[in-house]
Design a binder for these strands. Structure first.
Lengths: 216, 216
DNA sequence: CGGCGTGGTTAATGAGCGTTAACAGATCCC
DNA sequence: GGGATCTGTTAACGCTCATTAACCACGCCG
């Protein structure tokens, strides 16, 4: 709660390791992963620190050697998601543009990227807008800012394709499409779905269909 | 937690009053309304009973004259939403059918009904899939059952319109459209939106566009 | 060898909070 | 008038749970 974060050392180590061949994950990474899963399953307040500890084989207060507190774990998770979403979106836009793509291609790439994220990180998607309120003011502001930039990235692209729609209307439509794409956590646990690729294809079509109706 | 519910008497009274001209709301209704708002704002665990009491002008434990406990309030809210959604959906299907409408008309009416609900009861929409996990097993099962029936209602109709799609695919698409329609809580508080009717029209078009892409 | 940073442990602390107890003012009705 | 019923109140209880204290083992490095 008080100090900045005791995470810097571990961060550097983890980053260094990421450059080499795949290694066993850091304690810190294990904790974050398990915390994300548990928070998504039963809510931030619904899971105790002892449980998180048990999930990684240490018990209770041992977590405080890695995080300043329970809040810090949630904060790092949410900031991480929002940041990766935004960074991924920017990369995809840039890549599509240097490849000579127009707004349609950029939008297609944004949709694909968001779908990948939604399918690979269901737990984080769930947390994303479920537990935002539990963050400290400063963290919440940061996350909100990252989210807003991500939304605006989409809005800019969609507006080029549908200049007829108001900016507010476009923004509402983008939010609605996020809601559509983020619906994956509501689909029965393992796979009432045909398979990952089929689900991705379905979501892709639905999203394009929805946005296509903007100026229809 | 122990007794069935001390709600029956109040329920009957409230139902009787509902048949007359509009009267001031029951204490019970006031409490439910405020609890819904607070739970949606800060989460079930994030709000204390004293707060709920204060929101209706009584303080803390006074609530226990109207509800068996905090859990009971949430349970009644969630069961109520799911039930009203399902009942509304069935009514609309029946009405559209007796009016001679085909699947397209029924679906249109289902969409309109869901949009009304999403715009009128944002708080309940939020609670709907945020706090399901906090319910007692029996209540959770009941809510899940009502939700499932509502989903199946949609699935049946959509399948008639798009017989080419798998049942699982259709179900996933329906969930996705719910995600789209339920996105209203994410749109800035008062009205970054043009207005209620414009928002409804937008959501209607997006939903039809998404589902239209199912067999496109 | 010897100290020190790292990553654990268990026990204690302390706050928050749902719930219950005990009590009291209306209102209604016989 | 006087119990019964409703609807409140404040005070106390008890439990959960995040956090901190105090202590310890190991690995590294000079």
């Amino acid at each position: 709660m008080t100090s900045e974060n005791d995470s810097t050392a571990d961060h550097q180590r983890a980053r260094a390791r990421a450059l080499m061949a795949a290694t066993a994950p850091t304690r810190r990474e294990q904790i974050l992963k398990q915390a994300a899963r548990l928070f998504a399953e039963r809510g931030f307040h619904g899971v105790g620190v002892d449980e998180i500890g048990a999930a990684v084989g240490i018990s209770g207060p041992g977590l405080y050697r890695h995080f300043a507190g329970k809040d810090a774990m949630l904060a790092e998770l949410l900031v991480g998601i929002s940041g990766r979403l935004l960074a991924g979106g920017r990369e995809r836009r840039a890549a599509a543009e240097v490849a000579g793509g127009g707004p349609a291609e950029v939008l297609g790439s944004l949709i694909d990227g968001h779908i990948d994220f939604a399918l690979d990180d269901r737990a984080l998607i769930t947390l994303h807008d479920r537990e935002l309120g539990q963050l400290r003011d400063s963290d919440r502001k940061l996350v909100r800012s990252l989210q807003r930039q991500y939304v605006e990235l989409w809005v800019e692209v969609v507006r080029k394709l549908h200049p007829g729609a108001t900016e507010d209307t476009t923004r509402a439509a983008v939010h609605a499409v996020f809601g559509l794409l983020n619906s994956t956590p509501h689909l029965g646990r393992p796979g009432a779905l045909p398979g990952r690729e089929a689900t991705a294809a379905l979501l892709r079509r639905l999203a394009h269909g929805a946005l296509g109706a903007l100026s229809g």
